[in-house]
Design a binder for these strands. Structure first.
Lengths: 183, 183
DNA sequence: GTCTATAATTCGATAGAC
DNA sequence: GTCTATCGAATTATAGAC
């Protein structure tokens, strides 16, 4: 079957994200990705050069964080908690990064980049004392990533069972204190 | 060189924990573990049967959680935060489990077992309403594992830079609310 | 643009000598 | 108890025909 170059690349990327999210970097083989995409394994190398570069492309995604500057200051915690439960679910980028960043140094570096480039700048606009911004952003990251880890990767039963409303009620105040509360 | 059976097993286990913690399950090869232990790769199989059983033995450790029943009720949050920063550091079990649980189903299952067998029972003694215990234990796990992940695995700079006192001051109130606070 | 065939590694695990 | 030697399987990546 003949396809356009772009179509094939998109097919491969979609399959790659699926496998990287489900199995992590090592167990996600080029062969399995190609099988899911319905093409030959050699095509993957042809288009992306190597497995490492395929991963870099697959994991280079926008976390699409909400603009917390638009919500009332006393609601930023709830807004972030809502975003966390609504958008960072299964099939999103976050599980991919979590599953890979722990064993792949390139992915860990990407995680630090995403953190520094997308989460931290967003926090700076909220904090009174700019010198406190990095620590506050880091704290928000520990709770956000910990929740995603327990819910979508480890599947801890009680965390999996929490409803959207429960999650916001519990995590919202935590984020509120980390982002805009007293230190 | 001749050693006792127990000495060799201990050598292998120590090297295995080192490699599993640093590289995760897949990248921690039996060959590399044997090289660190200074013995032949075939000895690993001889003593533990398979890589999977070696991992099960290496990861079967006591988290040695503090007995939160012995501290004043309004101090359990700080006590857990202190334990988190003091004991669950580099070289401990937690990084091993984190690095492996994300890509190895057996390790993920072990993580759920550790959670259900060690953390949850400890929480039950603190909570007034027993029906709330699982959710509260799960919430504490999200913050605890998220902190360990960001600090010891991802090495996010601001999280890495936090002192023991800062960590307790920030995380203590969070744990306090999850464990013994209003819902 | 797609495929077959295969090179070059690397891994887990086994057999058997000493 | 320890080692050498090796098997069989799986992987990434390449070369080249169509």
């Amino acid at each position: 079957m003949r396809r356009s170059s772009e179509d094939t690349k998109a097919l491969i990327l979609r399959a790659a994200r699926e496998h990287f999210a489900a199995d992590g970097y090592d167990r996600a083989t080029i062969r399995a990705i190609a099988a899911t995409a319905g093409i030959d394994p050699s095509m993957v190398i042809r288009y992306f050069g190597s497995k490492e570069r395929l991963f870099a492309t697959a994991a280079d995604i926008d976390l699409r964080l909400p603009d917390l500057g638009e919500v009332p200051r006393d609601q930023v915690g709830n807004a972030l908690a809502a975003h966390l439960v609504d958008r960072w679910g299964d099939g999103d980028v976050l599980p991919i990064l979590l599953r890979t960043a722990v064993t792949n140094e390139g992915a860990a570096d990407r995680m630090r980049t995403v953190f520094a480039g997308q989460l931290a700048p967003l926090i700076i606009k909220l904090v009174d004392d700019p010198s406190e911004a990095p620590a506050r952003a880091g704290l928000a990251a520990t709770q956000a990533l910990g929740f995603a880890l327990c819910r979508h990767v480890l599947a801890l039963p009680p965390v999996l069972a929490m409803s959207r409303e429960e999650t916001i009620a519990w995590l919202g105040p935590t984020f509120q204190r980390y982002l805009a509360g007293p230190r």
